[in-house]
């Protein structure tokens, strides 16, 4: 795809509609970062399609000056599948949330990931239902008291990264609303990946679940609470004074302290490799959760696999190559016919 002749900016990707999220909502920052990244991707604006389901996050397409489709609850991946399968040249982005994507839409998310349709799925995980005013979601912590769980949630939460890996996703990443540079890097990587790119984004919901990601968002605690995944680099986190690393002991991850001059690799700290074909390593990373572990941020897994839309198109192409472009008259007269 050729880059557009005139330099486009974030403004070109901003629609004329008023943004209507609550003040302080993490979705604002995601929108701004997406609008900033878009001009850098080299895709003509008319070839970009944003597709969403229902919920706070799913209002996203209205604010992008691209093609956009705000669909029905949970089904955005299915709509996006129809778009991408029929028009592989389009850049298709799916915006969903923890309720839309993992509750009502879990089935479609699963099948889109396993088919490896070349789309980018941004799942805004604030661990709460916002637009219906504050019920617990499938990623809410056990015990969370909400309007629908006055005695606390008794649902075991699902981890979006583990879910995506379990579905055979070829690109899986996590980023945070407040880290603009990181988010833009991840979005760019997701776009470059050929296949379904799954990005869990952690935004704050100041109204119904304020502070749910505070440790990761607060600059004071972020270094201890997050683990930055970088290809070929050891899994090291913490402050310069208190460096720590992730090692595997008896098959399970654990945290070790690193002294000032320690070589993490020599100390047995795991070196990150997003290219491992088996998803078991990335699956191990997905189990790293607060408070025992830092939460990994970055690309968990990025592997190559043929995309659904390419294989579908190649079936069309090979059918035409073998049989010639379909001839309706020949079809209607195929098999046994008789003349009266």
């Amino acid at each position: 795809m050729a880059a557009p002749a005139v330099k486009v900016t974030a403004k070109d990707f901003t629609s004329d509609q008023d943004v209507r999220w609550c003040p302080g909502c993490g979705d604002y920052s995601i929108l701004a970062n997406v609008q900033r990244v878009m001009p850098e991707l080299g895709v003509p604006r008319e070839n970009v399609v944003f597709v969403s389901g229902i919920g706070c996050s799913s209002r996203f397409p209205y604010y992008m000056n691209t093609y956009g489709f705000h669909t029905i609850h949970g089904r955005a991946p299915a709509f996006a599948t129809g778009i991408k399968a029929s028009r592989p040249e389009l850049s298709v982005w799916i915006v969903t949330g923890d309720g839309d994507g993992l509750s009502i839409g879990g089935n479609h998310l699963m099948h889109t990931l396993r088919r490896n349709i070349d789309t980018q799925i941004m799942l805004f995980n604030n661990r709460i239902y916002g637009l219906t005013k504050g019920q617990y979601s499938p990623t809410s912590q056990v015990g969370l008291k909400t309007k629908s769980t006055p005695q606390g949630s008794i649902d075991h939460p699902i981890d979006p990264i583990a879910f995506a890996l379990g579905c055979g996703a070829t690109f899986v990443a996590r980023t945070i609303d407040v880290d603009a540079k990181h988010m833009q890097e991840v979005l760019t990587r997701a776009h470059q990946h050929k296949g379904t790119s799954f990005i869990e984004i952690l935004p704050n919901c100041p109204v119904f679940n304020d502070g749910v990601w505070e440790e990761m968002q607060d600059r004071k605690t972020r270094a201890q609470a997050t683990l930055s995944l970088e290809q070929g680099q050891p899994l090291v986190f913490g402050t310069p004074e208190g460096r720590k690393g992730i090692v595997i002991k008896n098959g399970s991850p654990s945290v070790i302290d690193l002294a000032a001059g320690d070589d993490p690799v020599a100390k047995g700290v795991v070196v990150h490799d997003e290219k491992i074909d088996s998803s078991s390593y990335a699956g191990m990373l997905a189990t790293l959760q607060r408070p025992e572990f830092p939460v990994p941020i970055g690309v968990f897994r990025s592997v190559e696999r043929a995309t659904y839309e390419d294989m579908l198109q190649s079936q069309v192409d090979s059918a035409i190559a073998q049989r010639g472009r379909g001839d309706l008259k020949a079809l209607l007269h195929s098999g046994d016919t008789w003349q009266i």
Binding site: V51, F69, T71, I72, R75, A78, F79, A80, T81, G82, I83, A85, S86, H108
Partner: peptide
């Protein structure tokens, strides 16, 4: 849903 997406 995929059909409506394709129509779009």
């Amino acid at each position: 849903s995929s059909t409506i997406g394709a129509a779009f």
